[in-house]
């Protein structure tokens, strides 16, 4: 069961720079560790994160094994119009999680 917490201001003025905070649950297993029996634990990480604002990509990040578990990504964008922000995390083993938040811009 994967969970994400996204914090976006519910309302903003047009042209205002808004802060977006995202937190997602993921083990981010590096692929370099070995188990108690000496077997290599296969890599299992989130490899990509994307934020779309009414369909337009406003932020994107590639993630690598050195990133801690439960990645916390904070970024800024300009509030241009009312609509939906869609966040997508993708990763190893077909991992995909999408969350949407609406924003009202006055």
């Amino acid at each position: 069961m994967s969970r994400a917490l996204v914090k976006v201001p519910g309302t903003a003025r047009r042209g205002e720079v808004i802060e977006i905070r995202t937190l997602v649950s993921h083990v981010m297993e590096t692929g370099f560790r070995v188990s108690n029996t000496g077997a290599l634990i296969p890599r299992d990480i989130i490899t990509g994160f994307e934020c779309r604002y009414n369909g337009e990509q406003v932020f994107r990040a590639d993630l690598y094994p050195a990133i801690a578990a439960n990645p916390f990504i904070v970024f800024h964008t300009v509030a241009t119009e009312s609509g939906t922000l869609t966040f997508t995390w993708t990763g190893d083993n077909g991992y995909a999680l999408t969350q949407s938040v609406t924003i009202r811009v006055a």
Binding site: M1, L5, R21, L23, S25, A69, N70
Partner: peptide
């Protein structure tokens, strides 16, 4: 900040 505290992901579960 509850949105920065990863334990909140466990809270949701």
């Amino acid at each position: 900040d509850d949105t920065a505290n990863p334990a909140m992901l466990w809270l949701l579960d």
